[in-house]
Design a protein around this nucleic acid. Sequence first.
DNA 1: GCGAGTGTTCGATGAAAACCATACAGTCGC
DNA 2: GCGACTGTATGGTTTTCATCGAACACTCGC
Lengths: 112, 112
Amino acid sequence: MAQRTTGTGHRAAPEHTHPDDVPVLAALAALADPVRMQLVRELAGSVDWSRSCGTFDVPVGKAALSHHFAVLRAAGLVEQRDEGPKRVNRLRREEFDARFPGLLELVLRDGH
Amino acid sequence: MAQRTTGTGHRAAPEHTHPDDVPVLAALAALADPVRMQLVRELAGSVDWSRSCGTFDVPVGKAALSHHFAVLRAAGLVEQRDEGPKRVNRLRREEFDARFPGLLELVLRDGH
DNA sequence: GCGAGTGTTCGATGAAAACCATACAGTCGC
DNA sequence: GCGACTGTATGGTTTTCATCGAACACTCGC
């Protein structure tokens, strides 16, 4: 019946929004938060699908963290996939950059 | 003594922040608001120093409007100058663009 | 199936921010 | 100076949002 390749669970697949369907205001609002910006930055420095949600060094509990990832998904910034019990992440660099040229680079290039 | 050219009042001059001294997070937060984004857009379509604060078509009272302009000033997005009883505005296009390349254009180019 | 590990959902709390109405401070024309 | 006009400051209300604790759902190894 169903193939069982790499982590095909019947868990509720996370809802994604393509960057093309994201209003500018939503994109800015998603990035205008210290925790989420930190997540994006760490994610940018990691290989795609290499980081599960729990592996990020942010000063918030699981609940808040989960919420932040939901916001990032809705803003078209992050894609998630279930891999066994964990949910691994990927920064949608190219897609997001095509929709909002320069925005991501601006957040990443900048320490100050 | 003091020259009295074009609107030299002894009113408290508005405090400005140069875009170079603005953190990315603050810039994004300033733009991530519907009213402020509207102000920036209208301002972008007007000649420098041609618009006083009251001439913007936003659905908020004077008090809130004044506050929004203060935020825009602090984010290095707007420069203000007193001209008689009114306070006229100018979008700091080049300076802001030098600090955050592409960001302003992104907000302006985009209707959706 | 049980238990550990991972993430989501729910309800409630607290802080931040937007907003308004009012009162105040300047500027200008008379 | 008086009065109209423009914007700011103050105080208080409402809304929004980040956060937590606890309960729940799912996966996996044993």
